[in-house]
Amino acid sequence: MTVWVCATCANHYPDTDAPPQICIICADERQWVPPGGQRWTTLAELAKAGHRSDIREVEPGLVGIGATPQVAIGQRSLLVRTPEGNLLWDPSGFIDEEAVRAVREMGGLRAVSASHPHFYGSIVEWSRAFDAEILLPEADVSWLTRPDPAVRTWSGTLEVLPGVTLVQCGGHFPGSAVVHWAGGADGKGVLLSGDTIFVTPGEDRITFVWSAPNRLPLPERDVRGVVEAVRPYRYDRIYGGWWTPVLRADAERVVRESAERYIQHLRGEA
């Protein structure tokens, strides 16, 4: 039996003789199904096609784990390292022995989590490799396409490790979340945002989306909810769901000002 991987979003589905007819993630309006129809692959097929893990230090205490060539949505995971244990955030759909070995050498995992269901990817494979908790917001747990007993739900905020806190922001999904890492950016603080807070290509602004591929905006109430959720935290830098772009400095100010500019456009006041 095979773990099926959606070729478009790279979410994993349970071991069955044949893949499901549809991927529920891609069939939702926030994602997309290819014009030619639903397609499936497996980790073995991806490895045979030449995909392998791409592991890089992003900054001291933070390691990125992606895939080359890119798989599906193309997000890369972020491993937050602390003396009390490690958190893996936004696991990509691709995982191989090289990545597992590297994380084991860096101290293993206490927990795995993600910003939203599009990025649940190989979350169960990582959990099983390290007997780690899967931390999912109560509001979005029904989107997990490969249920597992390691799942622990949360809402609001959850301190996973000292100085490493999950923050539910809502918006893109009701449970859309970020990680606040207090020790990042030389102690100035970092947000790991997936696409809950979307860093733009110029690395000088952020934006908000209900659906990125389908170009659907987020309502004003949800934008204000995201900004309010992160207001209590100090942070200077934001890493989104991909290697680049990165908002490298002065991120608190940029989030506030970008949100107000976004709302001006929604209201037709720009």
Rank of each mutant, 00 (worst) to 15 (best):
C6I: 05
T8K: 07
N11T: 14
H12A: 13
D17T: 13
A18M: 08
Q21Y: 05
I22V: 14
I24Y: 06
I25G: 05
R30D: 06
Q31M: 15
W32A: 13
V33G: 08
G36S: 13
W40R: 01
W40A: 02
A44N: 10
L46S: 03
I55T: 11
R56G: 05
G61E: 02
L62Y: 02
I65L: 15
A67M: 05
Q75V: 12
R76W: 12
L78N: 08
V80G: 01
T82R: 13
E84A: 15
E84Q: 15
G85E: 09
G85Y: 08
G85F: 09
L87T: 05
D96F: 01
E98G: 10
E98W: 04
V100C: 06
R101N: 13
E105K: 14
L109C: 09
S113H: 02
A114Y: 04
A114E: 05
I123Q: 01
I123K: 01
W126G: 08
F130Y: 00
D131A: 15
L135E: 11
R146I: 00
P147W: 00
P149S: 09
V151S: 09
R152K: 15
L158N: 11
V160N: 05
P162C: 07
P162F: 01
C169G: 06
P174D: 13
S176Y: 06
S176H: 07
A177C: 13
V179D: 07
A185Y: 01
G189A: 11
V190G: 05
V190S: 10
L191P: 08
G194R: 11
G194T: 11
G194A: 12
F198M: 12
F198R: 13
V199Y: 00
G202P: 04
F208T: 12
F208E: 12
N214I: 06
R215K: 14
R215S: 11
R221N: 08
G225F: 03
Y233G: 09
R237P: 02
I238H: 00
G240Y: 00
V246A: 08
R248D: 10
V254Y: 01
Q264E: 15
Q264D: 15
L266Q: 07
R267Y: 00
A270H: 06
